[in-house]
């Protein structure tokens, strides 16, 4: 692919915008930490259309930058643990070549929440947080599903543009 640097910069900007938009949407379900996970669209699309290494870099950079811009050191820690776990689960599932994008996005959503829950329990040293696990994971399932559908539509439309 030509002009790779420019594309990666564009994807990072896109991921940051998604983070920003998400920080503006009040999205409370009575359970803390439930989010849409809009940036996961960018990660999933990149995983399929660009490559794992690039998707990983953009995902990590996005978490750090968004943390400094719209969050605090703690939000970086939670995003990082969720982001890492979800990325590697999605990568592993993609490698099996047995699953559709939507399925991978759903699993990514669920494991993002598992990662965050683990980080939160360790930080506050209270394992009763897992009381909320079923609710959080179902939320991850639903948002992952929606994000997956969007990612499918995006990859279908971006194919022509990205591989010129």
């Amino acid at each position: 692919m030509k002009r790779k640097t420019a594309y990666l910069g564009m994807f990072l900007a896109l991921a940051l915008i998604c983070s920003y938009v998400e920080s503006l949407i009040p999205f409370y379900f009575g359970i803390p930490g439930v989010k849409l996970g809009l940036t996961n669209i960018v990660v999933v699309v990149m995983l399929y259309e660009i490559g794992a290494k690039e998707a990983f870099c953009i995902s990590m950079l996005r978490i750090l930058l968004a943390g400094f811009l719209f969050g605090n050191p703690f939000s970086i820690l939670y995003s990082l643990s969720g982001g890492l776990l979800s990325f590697f689960v999605m990568l592993a599932l993609k490698h099996t070549k047995k699953f559709q994008i939507v399925t991978i996005s759903v699993m990514g959503g669920i494991f993002h929440n598992i990662g965050q829950l683990c980080a939160a329990s360790v930080v506050v040293e209270n394992y009763n947080l897992f009381y909320y696990a079923p609710m959080l994971l179902i939320a991850g399932f639903i948002t992952g599903f929606l994000i997956g559908i969007l990612a499918v539509e995006m990859t279908a439309r971006l194919k022509g543009l990205l591989h010129k």
Binding site: P32, N72, F74, Y78, A120, V123, V124, E125, N126, N128, L129, Y131, Y132
Partner: peptide, 12 residues
């Protein structure tokens, strides 16, 4: 077992 968590202050 219900909890309210304030992550930045580590208050549970």
């Amino acid at each position: 077992n219900e909890t309210i968590v304030c992550l930045p202050n580590k208050v549970v």
